[in-house]
Amino acid sequence: MTSPDPTATAPATLGIIGAGRIGRAIAVLGRRAGIEVRVAASRPPEQLRADVEAAAPGASAVSVVDAARADIVVLAIPLGRHRQLPPEALAGALVVDAMNYWWELDGARPEFDDPLTSTSETVQAHLAGSRVVKAFGHVSAYALEELARDAGDPERIAMAIAGDDDRDVAAVGALADALGFDPLPAGPLAEGRRFEPGTEVFGADAGVTEAREMLERFWDSQRGRVVARARALSPERGAGGAE
């Protein structure tokens, strides 16, 4: 894992697709940081506007197409609906996958249960023209609402970030920092599996040192051993273990 890039800056505009608890919490933090926030959902903007303005004053209710034009776009919808996202509208966008797989909500979905891939890689396959980075999904909704802290605060918690392009990871890290969390680069997008639901760091709301140790222990966990075993048996993916 590399260190955060201190030269990266927070985005001027932030698009959020999804107006549930996670989307609203990120919108509030974005406005608090002085970022122009655009929120889109399945409802048309005119039906969404009152809720957005009440939850995050200063944020705008927009179409998915308009949200996709922001500097960074956060996906905060149920993961099972990811195929409803328009790849053409998000082409070229830096997209943050804050979604998680819950079989109780999404139903049994073999593509999300596959130990050879992470859920964010499945999202990237659908949004082939976008640059997908995984972040904001492993902290609790409560943490997004209540635990953001200024830089240097000893109570600040970590935000793990996985992506295939160092510049994109740095950009998302700058966003996390602006919103009140310590960015923790976690490797390429495939490594997002280490902070999916069921892993030690998921929902732990831990500081950087503790969160880094949790990520490093993944391969000794039950889920890590399942992933490593599947990879060892797959000629396409090679032997298991940290990359």
Rank of each mutant, 00 (worst) to 15 (best):
V95C: 04
A50D: 11
R69E: 15
A41V: 06
I77T: 02
A54H: 13
H82R: 11
N100P: 01
Y101C: 00
A98I: 06
S60H: 15
E46G: 04
A41G: 03
P87V: 11
D66M: 12
I72G: 00
V73I: 10
A61P: 01
D51M: 15
W102S: 08
A55K: 05
A76Y: 02
A70R: 03
S42V: 11
A89T: 04
P86Q: 12
G80L: 06
E53R: 09
P87G: 09
I72V: 12
V96T: 00
D71A: 11
Q84I: 03
V73D: 06
L75W: 10
P44F: 12
A93F: 10
R69Q: 15
L105S: 08
S42A: 14
A68D: 05
L85Y: 15
D51C: 06
P87M: 10
P78A: 05
W103A: 03
A61Y: 12
A68M: 09
V96Y: 05
G92I: 03
R81E: 11
E88D: 15
V73E: 01
L48W: 08
L75Q: 05
D97M: 04
A55L: 04
P44K: 15
A89C: 08
G107N: 01
P86L: 06
L75T: 03
E46M: 07
Q84M: 12
V62E: 03
P57C: 04
Q47P: 00
R83E: 06
G58W: 14
V64C: 07
P78E: 03
W103F: 14
A59S: 15
P87E: 11
W102R: 06
R81A: 14
Y101K: 01
V52S: 04
L48E: 03
